[in-house]
């Protein structure tokens, strides 16, 4: 690599390409984590709605829904948790669109670095944000009568599945962020993606009670598998193939979304 001839006193350090991919990712992760705390409204916004949903379903609609076994509050927590994770993972899409609109991505592209690593920062900060909001949500769940049977190792698995799911949706939402032309657009795009997946699912009611077409969709889509898997781990419902299917779906989404992101990111003609 040709040495850079900078006029000033400050010379860039020389390391391998791979080193810089990690180092730059870390710089971006630090940045995105700072944003969580600099912009606490975002975290509050993400946590308030799921808590309202939990109270609403627990106390208003819950009585009318037959779970076919567990108490409704026990049934409900997995659904709310995964829904929150999915909406939380959309934060990446807003952040990416914001960075594009602010010209930050353009500026980064003019740097001699692997500038796509800026996406990594946003994705990883979704993991942190979702972890924090999940803990808060679980605390509220316990207050309204949630009684899980999970062992410590079950909890670890729950955490891993929710993280994997968040990671997958975050990359998908990075794709949306790169495609969208405005913050408003990315909001409805994300909503259009996540709303049907989380409501036409096993989140609030067992899929068995749904009309045939909807049921077939609901039973086979990734969010249901993720919900059923962690529900099984938390309250001991049968897990069936949900665990495996959840992991396969998430990995598949990641394998498709990351190269797609790379392609969209490097597309030279930007949209400003």
């Amino acid at each position: 690599m040709e040495e850079t001839k900078m006029v000033g006193l400050y010379q860039p350090q020389q390391h391998s390409k791979l080193y810089w991919i990690f180092s730059d990712s870390l710089t971006f992760i630090k940045r995105s984590l700072k944003l969580i705390f600099r912009n606490p409204d975002q975290l509050i916004g993400l946590i308030v709605q799921p808590i309202m949903f939990m109270l609403l379903f627990r106390y208003v609609f819950g009585g009318a829904i037959d779970t076919g076994g567990p108490s409704y509050v026990n049934f409900l927590v997995a659904g709310i948790l995964v829904q929150m994770a999915a909406f939380g993972a959309l934060t990446t899409s807003y952040s990416v669109t914001y960075d594009m609109q602010k010209g930050i991505i353009d500026r980064l592209k003019s740097f001699p670095i692997a500038s796509w690593t800026v996406l990594t920062g946003h994705v990883v900060s979704d993991l942190f944000r979702n972890f924090i909001s999940s803990l808060i949500l679980l605390a509220v769940a316990f207050l309204v009568g949630f009684q899980p049977t999970a062992s410590l190792s079950d909890w670890v698995l729950v955490a891993l599945i929710v993280m994997l799911f968040t990671f997958a949706i975050s990359w998908l939402s990075a794709v949306l962020g790169l495609l969208a032309k405005s913050i408003e657009a990315v909001q409805w795009m994300g909503f259009l993606l996540v709303f049907p997946l989380t409501f036409a699912s096993a989140a609030f009611a067992p899929t068995e009670s749904m009309a045939t077409g909807l049921r077939i969709f609901a039973q086979n889509q990734p969010v249901t598998h993720v919900i059923e898997a962690i529900r099984a781990l938390m309250i001991g419902t049968p897990i069936g193939n949900h665990g495996i299917m959840a992991v396969i779906w998430c990995v598949a989404i990641i394998l498709v979304a990351i190269p797609l992101c790379a392609y969209l990111f490097n597309r030279q003609v930007s949209k400003s």
């Binding site: 180092s23 600099r38 500026r107 740097f111």
Partner: peptide, 20 residues
């Protein structure tokens, strides 16, 4: 092209790190 939520200092240090 700046990060509005970060401070001026943070912006400069971050970009400095990205200039390696």
């Amino acid at each position: 092209a700046l990060d509005e939520f970060l401070t001026g200092m943070d912006n400069l240090v971050m970009m400095g790190r990205l200039f390696h």
